[in-house]
Simulated scan of single mutants.
Amino acid sequence: MAPSPFALPFERLPATLPIFPLPHAIVMPGCQLPLNIFEPRYLNLVFDALGAERLIGMVQPDPTAPHKEAVYATGTAGRIVSFGETPDGRLLIVLAGVCRFDIREEIPTVRGYRRVLVDWSRFRQDLDTPGEAGGGYDRLRLMALLKEYLQRKGVEINWTNLEQIPSPLLVNVLAGQLPFDVPERQALVEAVTPEERMAKLASLLEFDVVGTVATNGRRH
């Protein structure tokens, strides 16, 4: 897939981002995330983003932190690619995943939403065109685990379409779509390379499958 003519090159990614803390909401490169915006501060965020680079940093709240406003230090940035208004004052937007980032520090704002200084450097390869991951990773094992996982969850999926997706993009899609807990999803966000993400995804799937088998065995 050719890159969007509206996409920013790595060198032009901004030094700061508005952030939208929301559990389970990530937008990995190559993926999309629809959002329903209605709080005044996040309406401000979207309007301001539309007047700039159209980038929003999606971050998950950290449930292990003592401060209720704390978020994980690594997030995913998405570019607004679709925008619509509703009669009751909401905005319906779609983000396209661009690149992950590390938060350096939070900076003061005056429009209600939060803004941070970011470091993109660890995730430069997020802007590369997805291909097959190297390192000899066993995709067949990943797909077998995924099939068993989805069967146990009662989820139906179009396997023909799934099998045509390159492994790195497939893992990015699954990271956002599978019903993982917040820390599990965050572990996938923080895995830098495609190989690391595939290995982490396989571990999460295997842990769930093995745990389910063990539980069912005890019941009998």
Score class of each variant (00 low, 15 high):
1 M>N: 08
1 M>D: 01
1 M>C: 04
3 P>C: 11
10 F>M: 09
10 F>C: 06
12 R>N: 08
18 P>L: 00
22 L>C: 14
33 L>V: 05
35 L>W: 00
40 P>R: 05
45 L>M: 15
50 L>P: 01
54 R>A: 01
54 R>K: 15
55 L>D: 00
57 G>I: 03
57 G>E: 04
58 M>A: 09
58 M>R: 02
63 P>M: 06
73 A>K: 12
78 G>C: 12
79 R>K: 14
81 V>Y: 04
85 E>H: 12
86 T>W: 03
89 G>D: 05
95 L>D: 11
96 A>M: 04
96 A>Y: 06
98 V>A: 02
102 D>W: 03
104 R>G: 02
105 E>H: 15
105 E>S: 15
111 R>G: 00
114 R>L: 13
116 V>H: 13
117 L>D: 00
122 R>S: 14
129 T>Q: 07
130 P>E: 07
132 E>L: 10
132 E>W: 09
140 L>D: 15
141 R>I: 02
149 Y>E: 04
153 K>Q: 13
157 I>P: 07
159 W>S: 02
167 S>A: 10
169 L>F: 05
173 V>D: 04
178 L>G: 09
179 P>D: 02
180 F>Q: 13
183 P>V: 11
186 Q>R: 02
189 V>T: 09
193 T>H: 05
194 P>T: 09
195 E>D: 09
196 E>H: 12
197 R>A: 10
199 A>G: 06
215 T>K: 12
218 R>I: 13
